[in-house]
Amino acid sequence: MIQIEGIEGLPEVGAGDDIAELVARSGVKVADGDILVVTSKIVSKAEGRVRQGESRAEAIEEETERVVARRGDLVIAETRHGFVMAAAGVDASNTEPGTILLLPEDSDASARRIRAGIRERLGADVGVIVSDTFGRPWRHGLTDLAIGAAGVRPLEDHRGQSDPYGNPLNATVTALIDEIAAAAELAKGKLAGIPIAIVRGLPHLITETDGPGITALLRPAGDDLFRHGSADVVYA
């Protein structure tokens, strides 16, 4: 059985705060095999990725490695991390007025630090996922995806197996950490002030090492059929 519990009552996170320490102080029970899903916004705040009085448009330009599509003020961009997302991940929500948040410099490294901190303070061997909100082509609505991970198997490769009818699976690779990130958002929510959720019941996905992190999910440019985005960019 899979259980998801949001950690309530955490204080506002500021630069220099230790997220693992905040979890330890919360009093919530953390056990071997749990997976902590941490909203990237508090990681950005803890790591000082907050800008005051800076133009959001300028920040988007600085964080953009490649523009995929643009329409009016909306920019879909690839960041230097390899993520394709709106506004290059620059966000003005859930932060004080007049400030904007940038993505963590290296969310895999952030996840590794949190994982090591939980092991040190609580003696628990857990997995950690750093999540952020993404839109999706061809579908309305947003969902959370993983942008960093440590100690969690990122993918489940079913290629070479057969379904119950005997049909071979030739292309089925499940993005496990994305599925966990999206499920955890049901417990965190966007407005409830709950930035961390604990997912229980998936101990078989915990790995002894930190693992490859988000790198395993990033599609190489040569395999990306939609790399050039909309006709707006192609013709430009």
Rank of each mutant, 00 (worst) to 15 (best):
D144A: 11
V173N: 11
S40G: 11
A187S: 12
M1I: 10
G89V: 01
G189D: 07
R139L: 12
I60A: 01
D224S: 09
I42R: 05
L22C: 04
I194E: 02
A59D: 05
I114N: 02
S230T: 13
R49S: 11
A171V: 15
A86E: 10
E47S: 12
Y165M: 15
L142A: 09
A184F: 09
A86D: 11
I118R: 04
G229K: 00
V28T: 13
G151L: 04
G53Y: 13
S93L: 10
L191V: 14
E65K: 15
P168F: 08
R51S: 15
E5C: 07
V23Y: 01
V38K: 02
I194L: 05
I118S: 03
R113Y: 10
D32I: 06
S40H: 09
D157R: 05
G72N: 06
R71V: 12
G141Q: 04
I60L: 02
G9N: 13
A171Y: 13
I194K: 05
H140I: 10
G166Y: 06
G211C: 08
G82R: 03
I177L: 04
E78H: 09
L74T: 12
S131F: 05
Y235Q: 13
G213Q: 00
P97R: 06
L191P: 06
V75C: 01
T172C: 14
L22T: 01
E78Q: 14
I198V: 14
R136C: 08
H81E: 14
E12T: 12
D91V: 07
I177H: 00
R159W: 13
P97S: 08
A109W: 07
E61M: 11
P168V: 05
D18C: 06
A124C: 07
R71P: 03
E54D: 13
G14S: 14
H81W: 13
D34L: 06
T79Y: 06
S110R: 03
R227P: 06
A87W: 09
A86G: 07
R121V: 03
R49W: 11
E105D: 15
L10D: 04
S93N: 10
A149R: 00
G151I: 00
V152S: 03
L217A: 10
G135C: 01
I35Q: 00
A109N: 08
D157E: 03
A24H: 02
D144Y: 07
V43D: 02
I2K: 11
D224A: 10
P104T: 05
G53N: 06
T39V: 12
T174S: 09
D163Q: 04
A87P: 02
A171N: 13
P203K: 01
